[in-house]
């Protein structure tokens, strides 16, 4: 039952952030949105799949809404959510379907390649996509009313809580156990009757939708989406976030890990050498994990 505290903890933290002033509000939206992409990376890591292209889903979620606004002039939240889920879900199905043919680092490189093709398309077809400048993201409206910062924070918190609940259910479920089996010994798991391709396909779709919704939220929070969302470095950060989340014992670990990563990245900008700070933090986490698990 303790696991069910996760969604509640997320909502509580978001509420606290709301009363913490404009900067905390913005940061909370950004982190919760980004954490959904981390969730996607984390979910695939449960299968042993390192998706270096998860940023493509993240980008598609935001671009789906940005393009809706640019061409159909709609800022309706429901339409945007549907578009983001549809685009990211379709991408996840594509990534899952072709990914099934490959494993290990080939899977990573295939997903990276797919995302880089998307990145290239987003940059180069600038008449449609706005090129490297990206697209403007409007303030979303619900039933014609702007949802504003409070509404956006509530949306981000609800989505993160919903995915945390899914993570909790997944961990105890048949599907979650099959994931553990596939990660350790795929062949054995299919010899026990699991249709590995189907499991990976469905999880790819779920992971991609999570990341797509995350991209949508982050795009709203900055009023902007750019091809950088799909760049492999963005995906790399999400994989790192997912890996840190998998070190953490809680279902809301993906939010904690996203908060940690983003906080350090933000903090590092005060220094002349931010990469050193982030790299050093990653080293410290890895070292701590190694000391903790001296097996």
């Amino acid at each position: 039952m303790r696991g069910w505290l996760s969604p509640i903890a997320i909502i509580t933290a978001a509420t606290a952030a709301y009363f913490g002033g404009p900067f905390l509000r913005f940061a909370a939206v950004y982190i919760l949105g980004w954490s959904l992409a981390v969730f996607g990376a984390w979910l695939l890591l449960r299968y042993g799949l390192v998706n270096f292209g998860i940023g493509a889903s993240y980008a598609l979620g935001a671009y789906a809404a940005g393009l809706m606004y640019r061409y159909l002039h709609t800022a309706d939240l429901a339409v945007h959510l549907l578009a983001a889920v549809g685009a990211a879900g379709a991408w996840g199905a594509l990534n899952g379907a072709v990914g099934i043919k490959t494993r290990g680092i080939y899977y990573s490189l295939l997903s990276l390649s797919l995302s880089m093709v998307l990145y290239g398309v987003l940059v180069k077809f600038y008449t449609v996509t706005g090129g490297s400048d990206g697209l403007y993201m409007p303030d979303p409206r619900l039933l014609g009313v702007r949802i504003g910062t409070a509404g956006l924070l509530a949306l981000a918190a609800l989505l993160a809580a919903a995915w945390a609940a899914l993570g909790e259910v997944f961990g105890r479920s048949y599907a979650g156990h099959v994931a553990a089996g596939i990660k350790i010994n795929e062949l054995r798991t299919s010899a026990l009757g699991a249709d590995v391709g189907r499991h990976i396909l469905i999880s790819s779709v779920l992971a991609s939708i999570a990341a797509g919704l995350g991209g949508l939220i982050v795009g709203y929070s900055t009023s902007h989406v750019s091809p950088d969302f799909a760049y492999w470095v963005t995906s790399g950060k999400m994989v790192v976030g997912g890996l840190i989340a998998s070190f953490l014992p809680w279902t809301w670990g993906f939010v904690a890990s996203a908060a940690l990563y983003q906080a350090v990245e933000l903090y590092s900008l005060q220094f002349a050498y931010p990469e050193l700070v982030v790299g050093g933090l990653l080293l410290a986490i890895l070292a701590a994990w190694r000391l903790y698990y001296r097996r």
């Binding site: 990469e275 790299g279 990653l282 890895l286 190694r290």
Partner: peptide
């Protein structure tokens, strides 16, 4: 020293990529 599994080792090299970039700047 830092990574036991392939994934942890990948993580360690990613950290090195960042640290390298920081050191180059420094």
């Amino acid at each position: 020293a830092l990574g036991r599994t392939e994934l942890e080792q990948l993580f360690a090299t990613y950290a090195l990529l960042l640290i390298g970039e920081g050191l180059f700047k420094l």
